[in-house]
């Protein structure tokens, strides 16, 4: 897989760990929400960074006060058409003020990237043969926005009255 972050290819040092695996020493690790909630106290003492993998079925209700120490959240798109993670991303950014990396994985289309960017994603996991240049171009195809979202860009309704 190829990681595109902030508009260019980035090194991916993160290791995904299943619930019954040991966390790899010396490496940043991605774990499930269930494991994080279960082992939070011990995991907090780890010196390497921690990331969470949320499926599109995972809700944020029990994470509201439990995002301290999380540097990365991976949100999954099990199908192009499953749009739940767009809402989850906005909630993480706008309501829970999560400022770490927000990574989109799974079935994501180049033509959905601008929506994801606006909802607060800053990293995308692409298939190895993806056309990266085209992908990055897709992020900025639409420059005008009608509604505020998780990015800093002002909607037309504000720009009109500057």
């Amino acid at each position: 897989m190829v990681l595109v972050k902030n508009g260019s290819v980035a090194q991916d040092n993160w290791v995904s760990v299943t619930d019954d695996e040991m966390l790899p020493p010396g490496k940043p690790a991605i774990i499930s929400k269930a494991r994080w909630l279960r082992e939070r106290c011990s995991l907090r003492r780890r010196s390497e960074a921690l990331g969470l993998h949320l499926t599109s079925d995972d809700t944020l209700d029990d994470l509201v006060n439990a995002l301290d120490g999380i540097a990365l959240i991976v949100l999954e798109f099990p199908a192009f058409t499953d749009g739940r993670s767009y809402s989850t991303a906005r909630l993480l950014r706008e309501r829970y003020h999560f400022s770490g990396e927000l990574r989109a994985v799974g079935q994501i289309l180049r033509d959905q990237a601008h929506f994801m960017l606006r909802c607060g994603f800053d990293a995308f996991e692409l298939v190895p043969n993806a056309d990266i240049a085209s992908w990055v171009e897709g992020l900025f195809e639409i420059a005008v926005h009608y509604q505020p979202a998780a990015d800093a860009r002002s909607p037309a309704s504000d720009l009109r009255h500057r």
Binding site: D82, G83, Y86, S87, R118, I142
Partner: peptide
């Protein structure tokens, strides 16, 4: 119309 057009969160509803 304006608010819903290319709404980034609501373009892949159920």
């Amino acid at each position: 119309r304006q608010w819903s057009t290319l709404h980034p969160e609501f373009s892949f509803l159920p």
